[in-house]
Design a protein around this nucleic acid. Structure first.
Lengths: 212, 212
DNA sequence: ATTTCTAAAAATTTCAACTTTTTGTTTGGC
DNA sequence: GCCAAACAAAAAGTTGAAATTTTTAGAAAT
């Protein structure tokens, strides 16, 4: 009846990027242990692994806490995400083949479908999880042709941290917001498929600059 | 009489970046436990923390191994290091004050002193540890004015991985080698102090391109 | 000879008790 | 009344062993 360790990892990860565990919260293995019906040591293991992604801060003899969120950190993670995503996209445009174009096109189609639904129904909550996955998938697909495992892994971490930092901020989730990002995602896709590196860099910047 | 956990971390880290633990080696907590007079679980903790830096690979239910080294990975880590270092240096040149210039100048002075010694005496081994520290310090100081904790942390990890990947390769440690890098480090310093972003980007590239 | 299956061995992960360190509170001195 | 030392409570880290999983190796079957 024990929860699989990997499920604990995934569950904690989700709680961290959705701010169910708010930034700065102390994460005590002993408290969390109860939730999952495992020993505190197992939780400790999971938290160490989450600290690799940057969602959790670890300090020797002082335990763990959900990574803090400050205006400076939010600007930092945004700047860094822009850098990595621009570079990854540029490399993808250089190296990517038709297959990359196809995958990107598909990812965008799916994302854009969900975003249109949200805009029409104005029911953000209902589609939030779906949208989250699709957004991440689109951005990761964008850089997926870069042929650099290190860059991709770094991006994946930065994206997670970005979510974590911003989620508590984004109270601007009206349908206006989605009208904007529909256009922004489209601009990124168009530039990418055109292999217009400068336009793509610009549209990535435009997409994220509200967080600077 | 127990070894402090942090010492275990530092010791393993050193063995990893110096290839005393060769890339790809399986790292079994049970084997290493003996070396340090602690339980295997403590070693496990340390290895999880080292996997955050990217020196150790971890796979669930399959344990740990020193990160592998292949030509592709060496190229990847080099490309990525160039990217991060160029960007960090550019930002430092933009944001850095006199203090940054002073620290950079000092770091270079120290490094250049050691490199001159090595070139004269041709006794690489004797100065290797000193040189390693000075080289890392110079490059980290170069980007230290970038005002982005994330970029600095990423660089620190990438630098460590770079070392790990290259150490087994660099059999080109003759005095020719040091003659070259003395010039290269000087070029980086000069460009940085001149705040000539393009020249600095170029000299960073020139410094690392041999590994591409 | 190659593949598949099974049993033993080895390695990894989990656990709950124990030790150390940190944190917070109370008490006593100034 | 304020600071500091001592104490108590809580949290973090460590341990050795048990439980689980993966790997290895040998036997049986195709």
């Amino acid at each position: 009846m024990r929860t699989d360790t990997n499920e604990i990892y995934v569950d904690l990860q989700r709680k961290l990027v959705t701010a169910q565990l708010e930034p700065g919260t102390k994460l005590k293995p002993n408290d969390l242990q109860g939730e999952y019906g495992c020993s505190s040591n197992t939780v400790r293991d999971v938290l160490l692994r989450l600290s690799k992604v940057g969602l959790v801060e670890f300090e020797m003899q002082r335990g763990f806490r959900a990574k803090a969120s400050t205006p400076e950190m939010r600007r930092d993670v945004t700047k860094f995400r822009i850098l990595i995503e621009q570079e990854g996209a540029a490399l993808s445009m250089k190296n990517g083949g038709v297959q990359w174009e196809a995958k990107l096109s598909a990812a965008h189609h799916q994302l854009s479908h969900i975003e249109t639904q949200i805009e029409r129904t104005n029911d953000v909550l209902r589609y939030m999880d779906l949208w989250s996955d699709a957004e991440e998938n689109f951005h990761e697909t964008l850089i997926s042709g870069c042929e650099s495992p290190l860059l991709r892994e770094t991006y994946s971490n930065v994206y997670a941290q970005f979510r974590q930092q911003m989620i508590s901020q984004e109270r601007n989730f009206g349908s206006n917001y989605f009208r904007s990002i529909i256009i922004e995602h489209q601009a990124i896709l168009d530039a990418a498929l055109d292999r217009d590196v400068e336009a793509c860099r610009q549209s990535i910047y435009d997409h994220l600059k509200r967080n600077l």
